[in-house]
Design a protein around this nucleic acid. Sequence first.
DNA 1: TATTGTTATACTCTATAACTATA
DNA 2: TATAGTTATAGAGTATAACAATA
Lengths: 139, 139
Amino acid sequence: MTDTPDDALVDALVQTSFVVTGVLTRVAAERDLSLTQLRMLGVLRDRRPRMAQLAALLGLDKSTVSGLIERAERRGLVRRVPSADDARAVEVEATADGLTLARDGAEQVGRALQPLLSSVDGTGRAALTRELERMLSAH
Amino acid sequence: MTDTPDDALVDALVQTSFVVTGVLTRVAAERDLSLTQLRMLGVLRDRRPRMAQLAALLGLDKSTVSGLIERAERRGLVRRVPSADDARAVEVEATADGLTLARDGAEQVGRALQPLLSSVDGTGRAALTRELERMLSAH
DNA sequence: TATTGTTATACTCTATAACTATA
DNA sequence: TATAGTTATAGAGTATAACAATA
């Protein structure tokens, strides 16, 4: 099988992912968080999911999330709340500290990505936003 | 500080990174590789770096790369070659098996990303490629 | 019986610090 | 002295399998 015409786009998407992931990892590390913990706090900014839902949102096994939440709870970033509906279930919510960290982290990510965006002009940014959103909507 | 007009683009970039990273992680896992190992093999497709260079390319500590290469060598995917120029240095190269895995992985990544690309038409793909490459060139 | 979550286990990834060998 | 790489150590992330409690 030879190259498809999309090879350049696939490469650009993969390279972009590595660069953005690097930025996210660095921003997380500056707050003594792993990328996964930062992502988890981001999810909890506007949700209070059960463990299984959180695992699905993060694409992780439920046992992985148990450990994740255990460490975050020990640091005072999240709280486990027994579900009122189902005695088996546990809901997870961010604490005030966790929300602050999530909000500050998101702001810092935006700032840290600006240098990258600086080489793309207004028209290019609009096109980039439009096409990425179109692509993500298929997901 | 309030939202900048780039918030939607930053969000799209971050979401795209998570989606693409998920695809890469899944493709790697199907070959019993971690994302880091797949990335490392990708680097070795067209390079034979020293340990320190490989660490810089991957953004990892040299000690991390020692372990990475140790496990990959045990699996027969890479080979350590003493440098002819500097008796302290070690060059790393992929074996035939490693190259096969790297090539197959890259192809599979392309295929796995097609469903995402399918919602973007030719004009959009061209714009996406152009603007992402422009953005990456700043890096 | 099926589902929710935790725990035990094993391995990979990761960085820091201390080390060896060479430059 | 400085650089290249390894090793020891410690901790986080990850999945699988087995489990307890509840539905």
